[in-house]
Design a protein around this nucleic acid. Structure first.
Length: 645
DNA sequence: GTTTCGGTTCTTTTT
DNA sequence: GAACCGAAAC
């Protein structure tokens, strides 16, 4: 393998951190300045210098981002990068906990539960404590407060008092719910997303010998998107880097858009204080966008007085001004976009170089209909992730129970697929089983059958039969086969009776079954599908429009780090974007402004800003919206006006 | 006592 | 669409 040509591949700004020696480093990388490139070359550089890849930890925002960087690094230094730890914080935490969760009183075969499961469990807890009433906060609200307390490492009580100052909610009740929720999770051996972080942190904090082991293992730690880390993540990193001190964090405070889940861009701002010997590097040359696009982004971010200003230098030549289109309503906006895309196609722009991005998922509903009508293929990074769809979760219940027989959530889900079985019946049977159920044990399956209402018993025999066969053919290692049999023996019929689009759902299950082929270990497989994100899934070939070229529809949050030739930002109306719920509070308004900054800097050549004046609600009410404050903050000279009625 | 069904309401952002 | 609620059906 020939040596890497750092001179030719990197500019001076990028080269400095890549070639730097040991010690802490902060890289402030503005949008489009080659942040990923810099990180990739840094990884390659370390490996080239003979660092064992197993001693490098690369923390990223999605697993896909880590994989892409590793692939590119592999292109530079070959297979020497194999063995490197790369992925999200949650992945790293899970990896540590699957080895050591028992030190915290957890079983190591714990399951990971998603938001829906968490909500159900919290609801159970509220009911059990007899707190259910109109004024008591909903599970989603409770969970978001629990999460904030976890991620910020702060007291829940203070949060509750602040949040419900004007409501008749007793903080003691909320604390009681959280306590019960935590006990229940421990009982049934499940962790939610926040538990992964909190427990990984506890593991390192409470077990110095484990901390020491990881500190010694990770000689170099690199963290991407550092502006969106929350305090507990920052603390985990600080702990891990505590011995070697070779920590490189990369980020941009302008692009901090996750404060609502505990992220705090002061992490990045205070880095030099926490690491006084840190070297600070800045990447300010933007290679992505034409100057006219950057002018718009810069004009907007100026409205954030608290932000640390930096200059974004355009590398590219002048091109054309972004358009601002004033439109009648959502329908008119859709027509405008369809006609513009037809135009762009005529100019030779490929569909996969076009993105339509928005603040909230529901902003894209109307557009999806219109795009389908116009026969324009699109891919949407949709609200519900592949693995969170009902049919996928239904099928996974059996795998989860095989892996973790204490998983009451999966047991209830499985049993309520049967006719005449609801939550109560499932719970009674769960108790009859002694709060454990392993589908591989015929005796336990019989116990279930005995306790079922008559109409459910026949259906249960179909499920039970799968396992008798399964054990006989000693396929208990092949869980793809188990999924296949569950679908063929029971679920296909169930789906046909339950869903109007059952055909598509069956195809999903087939896809899932094929996907298992990549995995040997059940526990690993289950935690992977629990932690996979939309963008990750797409990378794994779960994209339905595979092969065919399509326009991308995405939220701004999911567009982070990506780029397209042409970007449409839709629903730029005050109350839509910025969202209604964030316009009263200066700090959330500032975050919306950063969102607009992220959105507009996704565009390379062309940017279209769409403002529909009217939103038609369900009851055919019309609601008038003023233009987004972000549009009004942009000097008119920077934009070209477009009309389309 | 439970489950199911039908009508109503409301949508921030996600690992 | 999906989550919630109240009423009918088992």
């Amino acid at each position: 393998m020939s040596a890497i040509d750092y001179e030719a591949s990197l500019n001076e700004e990028q080269r400095a951190p890549v070639l730097a020696g040991d010690g802490p480093m902060l890289v402030i990388a503005a949008a489009g300045t080659g942040k990923t490139r810099t990180l990739t070359y840094r990884v390659a550089r370390l490996v080239e210098q003979g660092i064992d890849p197993r001693g490098i930890l690369l923390l990223t925002f999605t697993n896909k981002a880590a994989n892409e960087m590793l692939d590119r690094a592999r292109g530079l230094v070959g297979d020497m990068v194999s063995g490197l730890w790369g992925g999200t914080f949650h992945h790293m935490a899970n990896r540590m906990l699957s080895l050591y969760a028992d030190r915290l009183g957890y079983r190591t075969d714990y399951s990971i539960i998603d938001r829906d499961d968490s909500k159900k469990l919290v609801r159970d807890c509220v009911d059990q404590l007899g707190l259910r009433d109109k004024h008591f906060p909903k599970p989603a609200v409770l969970l978001s407060m629990f999460a904030l307390a976890d991620n910020r490492n702060c007291e829940l009580e203070a949060l509750v008092e602040e949040r419900f100052r004007h409501h008749p909610v007793d903080p003691a009740d909320v604390l009681a719910v959280r306590k019960l929720y935590q006990e229940r999770k421990l009982d049934i051996a499940v962790m939610d997303f926040d538990d992964l972080l909190v427990n990984a942190w506890r593991l390192l904090k409470e077990h110095p010998e484990i901390l020491r082991q990881y500190q010694e293992q990770f000689r170099h730690i690199l963290v991407d998107e550092y502006q969106d880390t929350n305090p507990i993540q920052a603390e985990i990193v600080d702990l891990l880097a505590g011995h070697h001190g070779n920590l490189m964090v990369v980020g941009d405070d302008f692009q901090s858009i996750y404060s609502w889940r505990g992220a705090d861009f002061r992490n990045i701002m205070s880095f030099p204080e926490r690491y006084p010997d840190a070297r600070v590097y800045k990447l300010e040359t933007n290679y992505r966008s034409v100057p006219e696009v950057l002018d718009v982004a810069n004009a907007c971010i100026r409205g954030n007085p608290q932000q640390f200003q930096k200059t974004l230098r355009a590398f590219r030549q002048d091109h054309r001004k972004p358009f601002v289109a004033t439109l009648r309503d959502g329908r008119n906006q859709s027509d405008y976009i369809v006609s513009k895309i037809a135009e762009l196609r005529g100019e030779g722009v490929a569909l996969d170089q076009i993105a339509i991005i928005y603040r909230s998922h529901f902003h894209a509903l109307e557009l999806q209909l219109e795009l389908s009508r116009a026969r324009l293929p699109y891919t949407i990074t949709s609200g519900t992730r592949f693995f969170e769809q009902a049919h996928i979760k239904d099928v996974c219940t059996i795998l989860r129970l095989v892996n973790n027989p204490a998983d009451e959530i999966s047991f209830t889900r499985l049993l309520t697929l049967l006719p005449r079985v609801g939550d109560r019946t499932a719970y009674k049977i769960w108790q009859a089983l002694g709060s454990r159920f392993n589908p591989l044990l015929s005796k336990q399956r019989d116990t279930v059958a005995e306790n079922l209402p008559a109409r459910a018993r026949d259906e249960w025999q179909k499920i039970s039969g799968i396992f008798t066969d399964f054990k006989e053919s000693s396929l208990h290692e092949d869980f793809g086969e188990l999924i296949y049999r569950f679908a063929a023996g029971f679920y296909e019929d169930y789906a046909a009776e339950t869903f109007d689009n059952h055909q598509r759902r069956i195809e999903d299950i087939e896809e899932l079954s094929a996907y298992t082929a990549k995995h040997r270990d059940l526990q690993e497989f289950l935690s992977e599908i629990a932690l996979i994100s939309n963008l990750d899934a797409e990378d794994e070939g779960f994209d339905r429009q595979e092969g065919s070229e399509s326009v991308r529809l995405t939220t701004i949050h999911q567009a982070k780090g990506l780029e397209w030739d042409t970007v449409f930002i839709i629903w730029l109306a005050d109350g839509m974007f910025p969202s209604r719920r964030s316009i009263d509070d200066p700090s959330t308004e500032a975050e919306e402004r950063r969102l607009f900054y992220v959105a507009s800097t996704r565009a390379k050549d062309r940017l279209y800003l769409c403002y529909p004046k009217v939103h038609r609600t369900r009851g055919n009410d019309t609601q008038y919206y003023p233009p987004s404050r972000f549009l009004q903050e942009i000097p008119t000279a920077l934009l070209e006006k477009d009309f389309f009625f």
